[in-house]
């Protein structure tokens, strides 16, 4: 049984091996005066196109081309190799041409967002598992609506049965906006629970003014607030899990476009030996 750690070591070793081989091949080209930029350039373009195929693979889920997990592994480690090829291609220095700098910027954005994506995918998934139940991002608005309905129903019942508007007032002033939509996005991304803690503290502060009957409703309301907080947490993290692709994918296609322009210009004005 190959564990995740072992698989990571094997994949990392393969990437290192490939990088070493590439470095040797690059050195051979360089020493033999065969302009290794053409070697690394073509290699980089090929790798980028291969990496882009991963997106296509996701769209063609019905075609049996290996598991998505295997593709993802290939995408991750090939991406790391692409970073090394890129470094060789630009000779470990910042390009000085405008087009080349933009191109390099696009690559950095693609690679950076990719690395960030891996980190997010790995860490957020764990965080979600620890704090929330498994919910589909698209359904979260629906769940929030349901919680809102439950909370409003609870508040109305409380007012009717206890004849006190304390809970209703509190809901109106503090909780109605809270239940209206996903809240505290940034705080949840940072892993902070301050917002929830503040609400709970306020509810605790209010509790001293409630009678026993109202206290029962308050506890039920507290449970709804806690569930809403977990939903907000799930919404924040899952949204981010999807949002980084808004950078990664457009930048990838922009990179390919500029790379093709770069390729034409390079061959127009120099060409390999």
């Amino acid at each position: 049984m190959i564990t995740f750690a072992i698989r990571r070591w094997i994949s990392g070793f393969i990437v290192l091996l490939a990088a070493a081989g590439l470095l040797a091949w690059h050195t051979a080209h360089n020493v033999a005066l065969y302009q290794p930029v053409f070697l690394t350039g073509w290699l980089l373009l090929t790798v980028v196109l291969l990496l882009t195929l991963y997106n296509g693979r996701k769209k063609l889920s019905m075609v049996p081309m290996g598991s998505a997990a295997a593709w993802l592994q290939l995408h991750i480690y090939l991406g790391l190799l692409a970073v090394f090829i890129f470094a060789l291609h630009i000779d470990w220095t910042l390009p000085s041409g405008i087009l080349e700098r933009i191109l390099a910027l696009f690559f950095v954005v693609v690679a950076g967002s990719g690395v960030a994506g891996i980190y997010i995918s790995r860490s957020y998934a764990r965080m979600l598992t620890r704090r929330t139940e498994e919910v589909v991002l698209e359904r979260i608005p629906q769940f929030i609506a349901e919680l809102r309905a439950q909370a409003e129903d609870l508040v109305l019942k409380s007012a009717a049965e206890t004849g006190s508007s304390t809970i209703a007032d509190f809901y109106g002033s503090r909780l109605s906006s809270y239940f209206a939509a996903p809240r505290n996005f940034r705080l949840h991304l940072r892993g902070s629970r301050r917002a929830s803690f503040t609400l709970m503290t306020d509810m605790d502060a209010m509790a001293r003014y409630l009678n026993d009957q109202e206290t029962v409703y308050l506890e039920k309301l507290r449970l709804l607030v806690e569930r809403k907080d977990r939903l907000d947490y799930a919404h924040a993290l899952q949204s981010t899990l999807k949002a980084w692709l808004f950078v990664h994918l457009p930048a990838t296609y922009g990179l390919i476009l500029l790379a093709l322009l770069h390729l034409v210009l390079v061959y127009s004005f120099s060409g390999p030996r």
Binding site: L137, E138, K242, L245, F246, L249, P250, A251, Y253, G254, L257, L258, L261
Partner: peptide, 20 residues
């Protein structure tokens, strides 16, 4: 979400091609 990503990608490409 997916459609929004595609729209953003197309916009980025269109703007990039236009600028180039």
């Amino acid at each position: 979400w997916r459609a929004r990503r595609a729209v953003v990608t197309r916009w980025v490409l269109a703007v990039l091609i236009g600028l180039v």
